[in-house]
Nucleic acid binder design. Structure first.
Ligand SMILES: [Zn+2]
Ligand SMILES: [Zn+2]
Ligand SMILES: [Zn+2]
Ligand SMILES: [Zn+2]
Lengths: 168, 168
DNA sequence: ATTGTGTTGTTACAACATTACACCCAGGAT
DNA sequence: ATCCTGGGTGTAATGTTGTAACAACACAAT
């Protein structure tokens, strides 16, 4: 299996500083989920997850289809099927603001309110759970009698690295 | 994309309780913006905005193209151009979770953090600004040195009316 | 009149996502 | 062994969302 390639060093700073996601950990979570559902963790699912974990940055489904190492060129629909499983398993999230998918090695609690912070420069995503945000949402909902079920919070901005690099 | 049954709703009960948006108020805001930018508030822009305000609920660009009363059938690209203007004017928001657009008659302050609450049943959207959410986001960002610029917060759930009406 | 700026009409295309169906294959029941 | 069944896979077709490019037009300023 692959250890994550290590960062720091080689590449020019576009390709590099996305991420990092522990590929083994996230894969084992996916396997557990597969077992719990009585379905197989197939090579298809494995390769898509491995690619996302290795890249550490959001990729579109078509980009995944092109780059899966697996020799065979995947059709979009196959990628979407794998992504569906991986999202259910909690190993992959979808970024609505970019129609892109990325691997996640956090273990999110049931009602946890998670914030995705997406760097406009390099595309890297950081996640943070925030109870304060959750309270804010509950408060906002209460004023109108709205029953919140599934929040989606994506913040565009600049990651620490890119903010430190004056850009251009 | 999520194919909820009936995402943007054409079903029986919704001509009623989606919304309401004050069409005149929102149009006059659009006109002011147009003046301030030295560009015209054209019939094209007017019809798109009027349709969204009247409907009071999010519609896809293609749905707008079909339904604009203006006799002429609009092409998607024309709708997108109108929407671009209207979004800049602050009269229309885009709902990323549904790829849909809706009219807004609030006057949002510059740094205001707005929460969109989208009813999964009827598709209606309510907005609320929350300083508590804003603080939560700043807190989440600080832990990683992220510089937040443009938050996008969309909560799926049930509006008060639909929650009171268990289903049909 | 000429130029400049911005809108419109139109075509074409790119990017994202789903439906449908045939096939395969492993596990369990007959 | 044979059949049935439930998921996964391969493939094609299509649906949905969004842009690029360009010619034609309107209007205002010079
Ligand atoms: Zn996560
Ligand atoms: Zn960055
Ligand atoms: Zn608004
Ligand atoms: Zn509702």
């Amino acid at each position: 299996m692959h250890r994550n390639p290590d960062p720091r060093g080689t590449r020019a700073h576009e390709e590099t500083h996305g991420h990092p996601v522990d590929g083994d950990a996230v894969e084992s979570r996916a396997r557990s989920y597969a077992v719990s559902k009585g379905v197989p963790f197939t090579p298809m699912r494995q390769s898509v997850l491995a690619l996302l974990a290795a890249s550490g940055k959001p990729m579109s489904a078509y980009e995944i289809a092109e780059k899966v190492s697996d020799a065979r060129k995947l059709k979009a629909v196959q990628v979407y099927r794998a992504l569906e499983f991986l999202q259910e398993a909690g190993c992959v999230h979808r970024l609505a603001s970019r129609s892109a998918y990325f691997a996640c090695d956090h273990l999110h609690g049931e009602g946890e309110t998670v914030v995705f912070m997406v760097c406009a420069q390099c595309g890297a995503v950081q996640e943070a759970a925030s109870e304060l945000v959750a309270r804010g949402l509950r408060g906002a909902a209460k004023t109108t009698g709205f029953r919140p079920r599934h929040p989606m919070i994506e913040v565009e901005g600049e990651c620490a690295e890119c903010a430190g690099t004056p850009e251009r």
